[in-house]
Amino acid sequence: MRYIYLLTILLLFSCNNERTLLLPEIENATVTEVLDVSPAYIFYDETEPDSTLLNRKNLISTTNWLVNVDKRLTLKQAIPKIIMMQEKKRNAKMHKNEDAKNYFTCNDTSIQNLGFLEFTDVVFNEKIKIDTVYHKYNLPTKENLMSKAGFHAQSTIPLVFDEKNQFQIGKQQFNIDNLKNELDKLTEINFIGIHLQLYFNKSLSFQEYITIKRKIISYNSDLISVDFNEYIY
């Protein structure tokens, strides 16, 4: 039986209740089928104190996990639940499968079917103070990043995404639509390559987060790498 059919049934009758979970949308997902899976759901529920309801009772640690997150949730609401599930799998002492992966389930509008975004190795870091994190990790500050006279080795570039569909590099702020253009400029300056560290405002919706991640993943190349640590501020 195809997993798509199973997912539809589970979404309709999860917890013996009819609940609506709006999946985030992406285009041209690189993964469109995952086998040997178990699902988890993070619902948008205004009756809960943090507006989230987690159903993970069907998760099996040795399988690939499909995490279904309602796109209306903010990162502040969704990330703690995601971290909880990641730690459960990483800390499993028995029946561990090193090959099992974690995916976010999405609606791939380009094929009118499901698509999946892997996040197995991503480590989410919460409650980061954006004004101090650069010093803590020995990174250039936002003020002096772009004032340097060129780069002489692969450079770690902090990309700071705010809640207004904009991102910041150094002191400069850009619309998200200009992301590829600005990364191309950075790789022209540093032909050795750049390493991106991603900072996300906690007020971003999960849909906005998925949209940004899909864009960045599509830019991965010999000159652009992305840190597995992601920071929520």
Rank of each mutant, 00 (worst) to 15 (best):
C15Y: 12
F43S: 06
I157S: 02
R214Y: 13
K96M: 02
V122C: 01
T52S: 08
Y5A: 08
L22A: 03
I216M: 00
Q197F: 04
Q207T: 10
Y134V: 05
L196M: 09
I128A: 06
D131W: 06
F167E: 12
I169Q: 06
I157V: 10
K93V: 02
S221Y: 11
W65Q: 14
L54F: 11
E25L: 15
F161N: 05
T62Q: 02
K71R: 15
D227S: 11
M84W: 12
Q77D: 07
S155I: 02
T32M: 02
A92L: 01
V160D: 07
N229K: 14
N144E: 06
I130G: 03
N55S: 09
C15L: 12
S61C: 00
W65T: 05
A29E: 00
L183H: 10
Y44F: 13
R56A: 14
H152N: 10
Y41P: 04
F174V: 09
L114V: 10
L11V: 01
T20W: 03
F200L: 05
S147W: 01
I176L: 14
M94W: 05
I232P: 13
L12D: 10
G115N: 07
I130Y: 09
Y134F: 15
G150V: 11
W65V: 13
I9F: 10
L11Y: 04
F116K: 02
P80S: 01
E98K: 11
K171M: 09
L22V: 03
L117D: 00
I189C: 03
F206I: 10
N64C: 09
I216W: 01
Q197N: 03
N91L: 11
A153V: 12
I111M: 04
F119E: 00
L139F: 15
D222C: 03
T62V: 00
V133L: 11
V133M: 08
A78K: 05
K89V: 12
H195A: 12
K215I: 12
I210A: 05
L198G: 01
N144C: 01
S147L: 14
